[in-house]
Structures are given as C-alpha cells and as structure tokens.
Write a protein that binds this DNA or RNA. Sequence first.
DNA 1: TTACTTAGTGTAAAAAATACACACTATATT
DNA 2: AATATAGTGTGTATTTTTTACACTAAGTAA
Lengths: 229, 229
Amino acid sequence: MEQILPHLDSVFSIDCVLFGFDGKELKILLIERNEEPFKDWWALPGNIVGPDESLDQSAARILYELTGLRGIYMEQYYAFGDPNRHPQGRVITLAYYALIRLGGDKELRPISTYAKRANWLPITDLPKLAFDHQKIYDKGLEKIKRRIKHQPIAFELLPEKFTLTQLQHVYELVLGKKLDKRNFRKKIVSFGVLKELDEKQKGVSYRAATLYRFDKRKYAKLFGKEISF
Amino acid sequence: MEQILPHLDSVFSIDCVLFGFDGKELKILLIERNEEPFKDWWALPGNIVGPDESLDQSAARILYELTGLRGIYMEQYYAFGDPNRHPQGRVITLAYYALIRLGGDKELRPISTYAKRANWLPITDLPKLAFDHQKIYDKGLEKIKRRIKHQPIAFELLPEKFTLTQLQHVYELVLGKKLDKRNFRKKIVSFGVLKELDEKQKGVSYRAATLYRFDKRKYAKLFGKEISF
DNA sequence: TTACTTAGTGTAAAAAATACACACTATATT
DNA sequence: AATATAGTGTGTATTTTTTACACTAAGTAA
C-alpha cells in the first residue's frame, strides 16, 4: 500500500556482517563506537541508506567507506525492525553479509570518525555487541552456514589460488565440524568448478600441495543444479 | 551506523504475497487499486509499517486488515529498495509471504478503501502488476519453492485433514513439476510427521482416500535435521 | 453387474554418502 | 647422508537414498 506517502520519523539503515578468513581463523569486522549510545562498545559497521541509492549500492558504498574494498560478493539476508532496537528512535536496519579474504597486502583503510577503531575479531571470542548486533550476527552466521552448502561462497574467503586443504578448512570453520578429507575432495572435485593448476604451494616445510583456482565459467554453467556439500 | 538520526523523507512499507490453495489451483491475493499512481492496476496488498510495531507484527496486522485471517505462518523474505520503484518518492518495502488454505467457510473480510476490490487470482494467469510487484511476486515464488523442500509449509495450504494425493498436488503446483506417486508417499511418510486418521474422505464418487493430519509435535522433535523433498 | 475412477502398494537398479588407513614427498634437523 | 616430521594424496567396500516403473483394490454410479 503505497499511494500515501506520509512523513515519518523513521530511519532506514544497513548493517554489515563481514566475515573474514586469514588462513587460520574466521573473523568478523567490528568497530568500537565513539559516540552515545553504546559509546565504547563494539558494533557492526553500518550506515544510513542514502536517498538515491539502491540497497545493494548502499551496502557496497558502506563496505567501501569502511574497508576500502570493492567487488565483494554481498547479500542482504534479514531486516531487523524491533521498535525498541535503537534507544533514540525507530531504526529499521537491513543486514548484509560479505565474505572477505584477509591478510597480506590489503589493509583496512582508515574509516570515518564515528568509530574509534575497526578490528577483525575471531568469532570464537566476540565481545558484547551494541544494540541487537549479536542477534544480527547470529542470524548472519546461520545464513552462511546454509549457503555454503549450496553455493560457492567459500571461495570468496580464500586467495585466488588455494589448496584443497585450505578450502576444506574454510568449510570446517563455517560449518563448525570436521569433514572427511577423502570424501570432501571427491565431492568438491566432482562438481567440476575447480581448476587444477600446474603450480605448487611455496614456503612450506613439508610436501607442497597442488594449487587450485575456482572456475567461474564452469560454475555459471552448473547453476540451476544446486550443489551441496 | 546509528548514532545520528536525521529526518528523512523515506517510507518503509510491507508488501505481502499471499499464496492460497483452493484444492485445485495455486492463487495469490491481489487488490485492484483505486488511486493514483497505478489506478485500476492490480497490486500486492501492502501497507506502511506503524511507528510502534515490530516488522512481524506489522505484517500480521496488514494481513489481518486485508483478509481477517490470523495465526498464519508468515515470513519476511526480501527488501526491495530501488530508488525509483515508487514514482512518488522513496519507498523501501519488505516483502512477506504467507500460505493460506482457501475456500468454504472462511471468506475475505471487506478491506480498506484504497482498493476497489481484492481477489484471488491463479498464478498461471496473472495480470500486469503495479510498481515492481511482479518482481516481488517472482522472488516470493522462488522462495517458497526452495522452502517447501525443507520445511513443512505445504500443510499451511491444506485443510487440517487432507489426503496424500492432495498433499502431492500442492507440491506439484509449487514446484511446477510432476512427482512420482509411490516415491512421494514413501518419502513423506518416512519423515513421520503425518498422522494417519481412521477417517476417510467423503463425498467423492470413487474410492475414498484415507485422511491424514500434520503432526506438529513430531515435527518439532525432528527439527534440526532438515527434511527434503 | 459392470464400468469407471482414483487409492494404494513393492522391488530392482542406480546413484550418492559414508567410513576407513596407509604410502608418498618435500623440507628441516642431526 | 640419514632420519624425523608434517601434511599430501589416494581407493574400496558398505550403507543409504533416489529413481523408475505397473498393477490390484475399493468405492461409486449407471
């Protein structure tokens, strides 16, 4: 019902749950707030949707402003609108998640002033979060758990070239359980979305593993058939 | 980012895709608009979120106001926020779906004045819809297609007592394909969420089928294990 | 009683998922 | 040069799940 457009005191925002993987741990990006309410608390990065932005554009902008990153696979997953979720008024927020490979070269750009600092914190040891952000995070984790079983989002967490062991490691962290090495390899290879490279891992003090690359073209063909891990 | 609460000219609404099943066809509830823009067009029923409502409450209220129905399984599934989706201003809308058993006793209550009339129209033959409502509907259908494979939402479309053939019929309509009768029955019974009744179908001019009831208690136990059709 | 219409049932074959253990290889250490 | 170390990489047998497929049983209507 949209023919009446009253002037309402409500605000619409986007909050992002950025999952990052540094090769070892799964982390999320949090900011330490510099203003009331919840001054000094950790919170999810978020911002208000601009008047001329689509939702996806807005989410992309917010991610960019906070991290300097572009071109990240990102998706909305739930709207949170409890009337009391924000102590200062009605704020409906749409949650997005993104998956990011951390480490090495790419550092987080300095971010806007509403935060003291931003940090990647391991999901195994999160602080108390501002607002209802714990709930938003919980639902986000749940979401990617489901999604990783059917869509190739795991590759977003890995460098372009990766070993099968690293890939399995990501699955184990997200799903929160051990997987059988032989079965995992059999299955993931059988989907035919991996390209085996002639290259080997470098700098390890044991047998070097073969490197693989995710083959987007093959995946595009496969779409429709859902894959499942 | 929520510490600043500017006064914005944006409106937040909810639109509902109500899927109804009358025993034969899958239908959705549409209203014929009585006001500009899109006067005389068919549109999804929707409304603006009230200042003191949670999103789910708001959706429930809207459904109630438009149909008189309560206690319906209903879930948000996507937010649409293209800046140009509404010709008169910025309207971000959150889409919900609901599944409803049609027919017999329960009639739609007269609804508010912004619509000339409301009608259940078969999804196989929909008119052009106002705004981006075709997109909203498409995404909703996609959503329940996925969901019906894993969660027992099909039962919401059926009367309390139903036959296995009716249940299969619902699956076929939603999924848009034929299913094998024996395999379907084998599978659905194996989940153990159906209770076979001592009763038979009445008023048919052929062999009467056994009636079943969905057993919510058994389903609750089973939750966690996803079921799949 | 017969014709009609839908209900209800089983099995074999193929495909997918699971469980499981050891030899290989590159490097570091002595 | 020999050895220890740590992770790589592979195959098979078993179980479970999925698929394909066709006839008899029961009730109603004429």
